[in-house]
């Protein structure tokens, strides 16, 4: 996993609530056996017509907007456990998703992919969405070590919460496998003493 420390970029607004993982990456694109290439089909059915031509009114097709942060409505990533949703966002160049609320499995999948799920209040989210729509060049600064999101143009900084262990992992590019494999002797000791082996 890539290390994540700071990010200076602009944001892409997606002001819908309950964006589910079937929209992020529809099931019919889950047939690959590798992790790469899912970005191409990110938001496929919102982004393209059935003939493959881009839908002009979808934000990813709007040349006004670019950047590595997706700013989305609350309860982002609900639905299926497909980690492909996080891979697709990452593959398409996003490194952070800002929302006022993330579905649990998506949050975990994002963290395991190196994509930061950054949770802000409903008020801050509404301000950000409006501000980016008014000025797509608005610079956003995410600083993971200090757990802050800054909007330099406003002179404002908000802090965000993240699990301290997951923060360490993301900042250093570590993942849980290394940690868990190192627990082998404790796991084997546990297996010896557990009661239900039926």
């Amino acid at each position: 996993m890539e290390k994540f420390q700071t990010l200076h970029t602009t944001g892409v607004p997606l002001p819908f609530e309950n964006v589910d993982t079937d929209q992020i990456i529809p099931a019919r694109f889950l047939k690959a056996n590798t992790r790469e290439g899912f970005g191409e089909n990110l938001f496929r059915d919102w982004r393209y017509n059935t003939d493959g031509s881009p839908k002009a009114d979808f934000v990813l097709n709007n040349p006004r907007y670019s950047g590595q942060i997706l700013v989305a409505g609350k309860n982002f990533g609900c639905g299926s456990s497909r980690e492909h949703a996080a891979w697709a966002l990452y593959d398409a160049g996003f490194r952070t998703v800002i929302s006022s609320y993330f579905a649990d499995i998506f949050r975990g999948n994002a963290l395991n992919t190196g994509l930061l799920p950054l949770q802000v209040s409903d008020e801050v989210l509404a301000l950000l969405l409006a501000a980016i729509e008014a000025d797509p060049q608005l610079e956003l600064v995410v600083d993971l070590p200090s757990q802050t999101l800054a909007v330099p143009a406003w002179g404002e900084t908000v802090s965000f919460a993240i699990d301290p262990y997951k923060k360490e992992c993301l900042v250093n590019g570590y993942d849980d496998i290394d940690f868990l494999v190192n627990q082998k002797s404790a796991i084997e000791a546990y297996e010896q003493k557990r009661a239900w082996t039926w």
Binding site: S81, E83, H84, G108, N109, T113, L180, Q183, I187
Partner: peptide, 20 residues
């Protein structure tokens, strides 16, 4: 409960998950 593919690999490697 459902898990993502990174966690599938974790369980394969250790039969455990790190969870809150």
């Amino acid at each position: 409960f459902g898990i993502g593919t990174s966690q599938v690999a974790q369980v394969m490697a250790s039969q455990c998950l790190l969870l809150t």
